[in-house]
Computed example of a mutant assay.
Amino acid sequence: MTRFAEELARLWPEEEREGPLGLAVSGGPDSLALLLLAHETLPGGIAVASVDHGLRAEAAGEVALVEATCRARAIPFAALRVRVPPGNLQSRARDARYAALARWAHAAGCGALATAHHADDQAETLLMRLARGSGLAGLAGVRDHGFVPETDLPLVRPLLGWRKAELEALVLAAGIEPARDPTNEDAAFDRARVRRHLAKHDWLDAAALAASAGHLAEAWRAIEWYAQIDWEEMVLREGEGPDGPVWRYYANVPRAIQVETVRRIVAELGGQVTRAEAGRAADRLWRGENASLGGVLAVPGIERVEKIGVEMRVWRFRAEPARRVH
């Protein structure tokens, strides 16, 4: 239990805690282990929610299992039901789940939300993203802390250093038979195929892969830090043009930083672009070509900066002119 308590304290320091720790518990071995560890570490200081996505008949029984586990320990519990819209099933289910959990955590006065992602999840995520050619932001994998999407609610994952097998052993030792989600073995999903591959090839060490994802996450945090400095020191709002504000960017940093700054400028102008789109635009601008992205027109140039006495690349961004219809 000390191991869990130390990791939780690192991710959610005691002096920052206001309200109980909310736990997302599905009824599987990983999340039940999270429940047991958190209950031991923070007795009387946790609340639990379980989400039924309405996709499987077994889900109601899994929610009931979590409720019974909480009732036996006098832990506040809430059952949440969500509707998953059509589209990418796993992605839409994730979005719906986090939205429901955020609403519940706010209503319950939770100070943070914890999920049960572990080292094996991290290894699977890294392999899937490598196969898709993801950039550094994607290869950084599952972060150990952050915020619930679209909210300011802290999100912590204190089990990223734990293996799935040890979490399952902890649950079984407590006399609880966890639920088994059949989609975890369904080869129609990428993650299930990657999981089988890892199990089949012992030279692929999940703990080592998870550690690599952690190193990549550290590198990504460094890029985020540098991108913030780039924004503060190299981006200026020049004023108003005929189509709205004009932003000036002295773009003389590595491409990875440029991408983050370009995305932020586009967002300031009301647009939204992916890192891949921002990267292609940055490449065009670096070659001296105009770029259009997310309803924003970017025009490159080179100017002498008198303050430091050197010439620098300068990119100007403005909303694209409205199309005139004759």
Rank of each mutant, 00 (worst) to 15 (best):
M1K: 07
E16W: 10
P20F: 12
G22T: 02
L23N: 00
P29G: 08
D30M: 04
L36T: 10
H39M: 08
A47N: 06
A49I: 05
S50I: 01
E58R: 09
A59I: 01
A74V: 09
R81F: 00
R81T: 03
R83L: 07
G87D: 03
N88R: 15
D95G: 09
L101D: 06
L101T: 07
H106I: 08
C110H: 04
L113N: 05
A114Y: 02
T115R: 01
T125S: 15
G135R: 12
A137M: 11
G138C: 03
L139V: 02
R143A: 06
D144H: 05
T151L: 04
D152W: 05
D152L: 09
R157F: 03
L160M: 08
R163W: 00
L167F: 00
E168A: 08
A169K: 06
V171K: 02
V171L: 02
E177Q: 13
R180H: 12
T183I: 12
L198R: 03
A199P: 04
A208S: 13
L209H: 04
A211P: 03
A213K: 03
L216C: 08
L216P: 05
E218Q: 14
A222T: 10
I229D: 07
E240S: 14
E240F: 14
G244I: 11
P245R: 12
R248W: 08
Y250V: 14
V253T: 12
R255W: 07
A267K: 14
A267P: 06
L269V: 14
V273H: 12
A282R: 13
L285Y: 10
L285C: 09
G288Y: 05
N290K: 15
V299P: 09
V299T: 15
K307Q: 14
M312W: 11
V314M: 13
P321Y: 08
A322G: 15
R323S: 14
H326N: 14
